[in-house]
Amino acid sequence: MTPAQHPSAPSLSRVGIARRISQDFREGDVINLGVGVPMLCSLFIEDEDDIFLHSEHGVLGHGRTARTQDEVDPSLATAGRQPIIPRPGMVVMDHAESFALIRGGHLDATILGAFQVSVQGDLANFWLPGAIAGAIGGAQDLAFCARRVVVAMQLLPRPRRFVNRLDLEMTAPRCVDRLVTDIGVIDLEDGRAIVRELVPGWSLEDAQRVTEVELVAAPEGIAEVTLKSDRDDLWTAA
């Protein structure tokens, strides 16, 4: 399948995808953000939201990223190596405890990047063809055990990201609940791809040209993606 691009309508940027994902967070949620686009979700979380970000090396409920070198404590960073500052409610724990939290189902959601996702919800994000060995990190524990798995995925202009069957080595089977993409929001339910939202200017037919997976309109209708932010880097021009 050749990469598709909509001729006229803009799509979500990486920051825009993160903004849309973060709009699903609720007060009290415990959420792990993976490296890459998921990490950008922290741009949209304020202290007063009481959302507990989890870094798998054992930091839960940290504050915002450090803004100056004076604020940097070399021992306090996210798993993606962003320096962060403490805040009331933060807790540190060892790595085994951190993964007990994950495996025991105490995370409300994990936000992950992916090389490939299948319509059944199978996730591939640790081994690229040509590499000698993969980088599994904490992704397998997170994907198997978090209560909700959301994947941030750029579909444009990359082919074979969202597929009927994985080509790549699988991280975890049937785990992905929701794809938040540059063209819209797709829920994976019982082996079907339910389109909940599309960015303005995109139709279901336009979206269908981007993936081999058969897309199904949500029974309540397809909403437009709306972003609660006035940043100027949320959209990519066509």
Binding site: H95, I102, A133, I136
Partner: peptide, 23 residues
């Protein structure tokens, strides 16, 4: 450096997730 060793044939890698490694 480990990957280079695997290509040379003198290094073996056992990949495992962090939760399982810790346990």
């Amino acid at each position: 450096p480990l990957e280079a060793g695997v290509r040379r044939g003198d290094v073996e890698i056992e990949l495992i997730g962090q939760g399982s490694l810790c346990e």
